[in-house]
Design a protein around this nucleic acid. Structure first.
Lengths: 342, 342
DNA sequence: CTGAAAGCGCTTACAG
DNA sequence: CTGAAAGCGCTTACAG
């Protein structure tokens, strides 16, 4: 008893839609419709199909679905970095919203590199994603065109100003930084440094909010801006803190562009026995994990990234369904969190 | 001049392999072979095909490729958490290795939930991934069977002990913890607490290494083990530090199962004016960002997660190619980093 | 409400 | 070394 020749067959062995249809005693198309919950299938037949699918442990082949329907259940999400807790929390919120809706996320990390972003975009777009979530508005023309020409619904994360026909969920980095700087001014600080790493567009928007507040108060001094292109870290914050105090002993406050820098600055102050906020007030940005544990606890801006993720995902879902989105630009705001460092 | 009726057509408008083949003046199969770099295509034809593809900006349809070949260029990676920097660094290393080899990573976050892991596994396996990377060895039978039955090459991350026919890259959590505990003993510490959150298998393996060292020294005391199921964080570390000192004022060292807890403990000590290491020595585990910035800098175990990612990805690549892997279990080791907290 | 036919864009298995 | 045919597992577009 030899097996029949299989050379001609290419079946993969997995259970297919026709298997389900056969077991349910209907055609493949009816099974497909029943499983997709398309109205207009006899209720009893639909039940039989679902039961058959369950019994056979049927899982549809995503590749076949994508090929036949020219759509997929993927949503591509492009973020700059995974090593910044901000984006991780954003991502988690996005997934919590998208997964129950039946979508899978393809996560792409651009490392703030336009070329990497373009490559990821090309590769992900080839997968016919149902939607696209990208960070910020800064990208080269080629990338912008790829998005536009793909026709894939796209929501921009983190920022608010957007051109016509674009969608975004974020907050005004400028206004938040301005509010924070005004808080320092209200405490009587006048020699306020802006210390930044990882000079991405949002970091520069914060800088401009800082400048606006200081100009209005008449105490803007460009030499107090320390802009370092290195990725942010606690270690960098410590180093920059030392550098600022050495170069400008009269500084009475430091605005770190991100909480990790500020945490490093706070620890350096402790090490150097610089009184905070006595001699120097310190503020951060984003309210990351640990900032409330510092000594003294860090005054900062809380950015609602989970809400950004949730709202952006909802908006994208609406766009995917073809609905009209009434407010294409959602501003989720920010919160000044005053603790003891300033 | 009306357009010809298109109702019958389902073409998606994108440029296909036949377009490339036509432009190059060859058949689709030859074009396919040329583009895939399959030997046995006339060099001149292959050149023409590549030129045509470039000219048309041809990007192959991954869905069609997957359907026709029953394989994809996806590698699914399952990790417990994205909020633990350890896994993020692991992931980055994996991607750095896999992307240049032409593979895309599907990242799944299990949140330490067997059910979530099973659901992700089912969904990812449906995509016929070329390979699978999973964290740890602890999973229910159903998940293990899914992996085995899928026939997809799989490498286990983080741990070393593995059954026959399985592959893994990691380190002995037990031995690392034991080494660290012995360091504390060598400093003359005897009342050493083990403080843990997020009681995953690796945290428990560390506990057993800790216990082994203490038993051998004759000073194991089970009441000094504080096991809290909550996810780890600096805030939790601070709270547990207080709790330990209150309940056991005679404790002379604390082994925190993860650096974020230890960092929180260190800051709590500063707040409570408990001398470290004078009154209490503190050690962490993993050597995460910021630990070297603490006051005092944290003594800890450096776990080479980037190397785990790189090696696991290489091993997986070999398995995908069908090669025999000589050492199915790679132990990347660990490093005791003695700083000033112990 | 249901189904037979055709097709999505590739690759496999043959044949030459 | 090259190609015509068939097929991967679904869904679309028609027809009834």
């Amino acid at each position: 008893m030899t097996n029949p020749p299989l050379s001609r067959k290419r079946a993969t062995g997995r259970c297919t839609l026709s298997d389900v249809a056969r077991l349910a005693g209907v055609s493949a198309i009816t099974a497909s419709r029943a499983l997709r919950g398309i109205r207009g299938v006899d209720a009893e037949l639909a039940d039989r199909v679902r039961a058959a699918a369950k019994q056979l442990n049927y899982v549809p082949d995503p590749a076949a679905q994508a090929l036949a329907s020219a759509r997929s259940n993927n949503v591509a999400v492009l973020i700059p970095l995974l090593t910044n807790a901000l984006f991780v929390e954003l991502l988690e919120a996005v997934q919590r919203k998208l997964m129950p809706a039946g979508f899978q996320t393809l996560i792409g990390v651009t490392h703030y590199h336009p070329d990497e972003e373009e490559a990821l975009l090309q590769s992900y777009l080839a997968h016919r994603p149902a939607g696209l979530l990208v960070t910020g508005l800064d990208r080269n023309e080629s990338a912008r065109n790829m998005i536009a020409e793909s026709g894939v619904p796209c929501v921009h994360l983190m920022e608010t100003t957007v051109a016509a026909g674009m969608y975004s969920v974020g907050l005004s980095q400028h206004d938040a930084a301005r509010t924070l700087t005004e808080h320092l001014l209200a405490q009587g600080r006048r020699r306020i440094a802006y210390v930044a790493g990882q000079l991405d567009p949002r970091v520069l928007q914060r800088r401009s909010g800082y400048e606006a507040a200081l100009r209005q108060a008449g105490c803007y001094d460009a030499s107090l801006e320390i802009l370092d292109p290195t990725p942010t870290s606690m270690a960098l914050g410590g180093r920059l803190f030392e550098r600022v105090l050495k170069a400008h002993p009269d500084v009475d406050a430091i605005f770190f562009c991100n909480d990790d820098l500020a945490q490093g600055g706070l620890l350096a102050a402790l090490r150097m026995k610089v009184a905070v906020p006595g001699q120097v007030a310190i503020v951060g940005f984003n309210d990351l994990a640990g900032s409330d544990q510092m000594l003294p606890p860090l005054t900062t801006i809380r950015t609602p990234r989970a809400e950004i993720g949730t709202q952006a995902a909802s908006m994208l879902l609406a766009l995917i369904r073809g609905e009209t989105v009434a407010t294409p630009t959602v501003d989720v705001g920010f919160e000044l969190v005053v603790r003891q460092s300033a």
